[in-house]
Amino acid sequence: MEPILTITNLTKKFGYLTAVQDLSFTINKGNVYGILGPNGSGKSTTLGIVLNVVNKTSGNFHWFDGNISTHNALKKVGAIIERPNFYPYMTAYQNLKLVCKIKEVPFEKIEEKLEIVGLLDRKDHKFRTYSLGMKQRLAIASALLNDPEILILDEPTNGLDPQGIHQIREIIKSIAANGTTILLASHLLDEVEKVCSHVVVLRKGVKLYSGRVDEMINSYGFFQLKATEQSQLLNILETNPTFGKITTENDLITAFLNEPMDASTLNKLMFEKGITLSHLVKRKESLEEQFLQLTDNK
């Protein structure tokens, strides 16, 4: 696979505080990556370093094959950091024109990208008259101007209203569907779960996990069960080695699997034992549950 960004042993210290510690991971072409972590876990610092605005303390990173200077590589990257930063006294069109000049791309792209984010009819309005949602959409248009190899988004839905969040997510999804590599930093897990195939999990600047979302923790999922003969059901589950931890909440029993088993097998087994289930659901842990499990364990 073609690497887009390679980070090796990256460390950043702010005085006594270590914001990023010995971080290594690789971003490959074509995947959608999420960087997960609570606030202050070093997500933005890491992105700041690779985007040339924060100086690293030690370690290395390189873009693409490593034969290109960082600022030239960034011309092939689209990035949005926290808040949209533009010149308030310029119109949307003028702001994007300036970005075109920096990235050395033709001006024809401007209208095309404004169309994508739905701002074409407001292109001649000054940036300061925009709402936060519109500003964020303009930032996305700006990041797309050079048809980037990779799109980096840092908390793109922060501070937006539900409608704005929805709009931004739709735009991100359609970009991902086009095959653009995306790196999305967020603490909103459902956001990451919906679009990402790979994740990097950080806590206090240390990497806890990097890899595919569905392999994040070793788990075969769990069953949620209900039956009128509750004590009998519990008894069977506890004696069966297939099941690990079993919890009961009200009359809902949750049984975690130690080895794979599908729902119909379980149903058959229960029927043979003479128990009729009134509720049977097989689930995998959500990203949120996995994430909490991962960050609690260490």
Binding site: L51, N52, V53, S69, T70, H71, N72, A73, L74, K75, V77, A79, I81, R83, N85, F86, Y87, P88, V99, I102, K103, S142
Partner: peptide, 21 residues
Amino acid sequence: GNEYSNKTLKQNLIDGLSKKE
């Protein structure tokens, strides 16, 4: 001063301008 207060300096660098430029 404006580049700092609008944070456009940061944005310029992210867009691919080097600090020297």
